[in-house]
Every structure is written in structure tokens, then in C-alpha cells.
């Protein structure tokens, strides 16, 4: 069991991701208080300045580039908080990750979920 699982199409968030994605995850974790959510939505660029993000990470936050957020070290549970301030559902993100519309993704789930491999 000593090696990290390698499953295509699947993020397995690990310690290196945590290190690389620290600023993304830290920003997202602040969105658990109403005051921080309000401050973020009022001036997102300024809010980002308080975190030591790379330019790519900053862009991914501001543009809600959900795939890049994960590729740049975001944990799905942290990134989900960013979707929550946008009132986007997990099904919306599911559609983004799979290249489907939200409606098609929801329909696929209602049909029993996706068989993958």
C-alpha cells in the first residue's frame, strides 16, 4: 500500500498538493464566515492580495477556473467553498469536470450515476 493511488481521471490530494496549493486552500478556508464572504465578494482582487498566490492561482480564483484550481493544488473541499459563495452546486462543478452541462450531469446522476471504467 506504500504508493499513492494512481487512478486516471481522479485527483488524489496529497501533501505535495497541499504545499503547492496552500494559498488557494487558505483563501477558500476563510470563506466560512459571513464577514469574509462579504469582503471577498466586494473586492475579489484585493482579497486575493492577502494570500501568497502565484499569478496562475490568482487567475484561477478570479476566473473560477475550477479545473485549474485543482490542478494548482486546490483541495476539492476547499475549492467547493468558492463555488458556494457563487451559489453554484456540486452538480454544476460535476458538469464542468466532465464536460457536461449541469442538466446533463444531474440527469446522469438520476439515471444511476456514471459508470467509470
Amino acid at each position: 500500500m506504500t504508493t499513492k493511488p494512481d487512478v486516471p481521471g481522479t485527483y488524489v490530494f496529497d501533501i505535495a498538493d497541499s504545499r503547492h496549493g496552500h494559498a488557494i486552500n487558505e483563501l477558500c478556508s476563510t470563506l466560512t464566515t459571513p464577514a469574509h464572504r462579504a469582503r471577498f465578494l466586494a473586492d475579489e482582487a484585493d482579497y486575493c492580495d492577502h494570500f501568497d498566490m502565484t499569478p496562475a492561482q490568482r487567475t484561477a480564483v478570479l476566473q473560477r477556473d475550477w479545473r485549474s484550481l485543482l490542478d494548482l493544488g486546490g483541495s476539492i473541499f476547499h475549492v467547493l467553498k468558492l463555488a458556494t459563495v457563487d451559489k453554484l452546486s456540486m452538480q454544476h462543478l460535476g458538469g464542468v469536470f466532465t464536460g457536461m452541462t449541469t442538466e446533463d450531469f444531474i440527469a446522469a446522476m438520476r439515471a444511476g450515476g456514471r459508470r467509470c471504467g
Partner: peptide, 12 residues
Amino acid sequence: QLAGERAGLINP
């Protein structure tokens, strides 16, 4: 599974 290309996976 919440993320990645396999998002929405269900394995009954």
C-alpha cells in the same frame, strides 16, 4: 467522486 473526469462515478 466529486472532481476529475470521473466525477459522478457510482459503483453499485
